[in-house]
């Protein structure tokens, strides 16, 4: 008798463990009239789009807007315009940087491609980052203070709690030279 109860408990625990996966897309966005910013009495509430209406159909993430913005662009879910004036030069650079000197953490892979699809070179160079590799003196403490990568990551791009998305290259798997890598590694 006792054993069968334990078996039930076992199944129950297993159910609890797999429940979030079974439940599917559990992403929730606050409607504008409950987001603590918009005036629920204001005339705009009936006219503006709610985040859930637009974001729920985009590739899911667990943080930020709950959307993988780079994936949404790459996979064609969104086609945002790259320029307003026809004369503007749009540059996409397909070049990875690998940063060493990351302490106990894996090395950092910085993909220029994903960044230049959204941003212009001048958004970072020569302001936030020096173009010369390793010349900017980046530290994690400064990033957490909102400098360097932290200008966007933690504010509009995925937050700094997602360590492994940047610290993604284990020292075991990378024996080359730090700095610019000519080709995007397989698997991207």
């Amino acid at each position: 008798m006792g054993l069968s109860w334990r078996r039930w408990m076992f199944f129950f625990c297993m159910f609890l463990l797999v429940f979030p996966a079974l439940a599917g897309d559990k992403r929730v966005w606050k409607p504008l009239d409950k987001d603590g910013l918009h005036d629920p009495q204001g005339p705009s509430i009936r006219e503006l789009q709610n985040p859930a209406d637009a974001l729920s159909i985009l590739p899911p993430d667990l943080i930020g807007n709950m959307v993988r913005w780079v994936g949404a662009l790459d996979q064609g879910f969104i086609q945002p315009r790259a320029n307003l004036q026809p004369g503007t030069k749009v540059t996409v650079l397909d070049m990875d940087l690998i940063f060493g000197k990351t302490g106990d953490q894996p090395y950092v892979r910085f993909p220029h491609k994903a960044h230049t699809e959204w941003l212009d070179c001048a958004n970072c160079h020569e302001g936030i980052f020096k173009t010369k590799f390793n010349a900017s003196g980046i530290t994690m403490a400064q990033i957490l203070e909102g400098r360097f990568c932290g200008v966007c990551h933690g504010a509009v791009a995925f937050p700094l709690t997602e360590c492994t998305r940047c610290h993604s290259v284990t020292p075991d798997s990378f024996k080359g030279a730090f700095g610019a890598q000519n080709q995007t590694p397989a698997g991207k």
Partner: peptide
């Protein structure tokens, strides 16, 4: 979120 569906940051 609304604007980046339609425009890239660089615009």
């Amino acid at each position: 979120w609304f604007h980046r569906i339609r425009f890239r940051c660089k615009v």
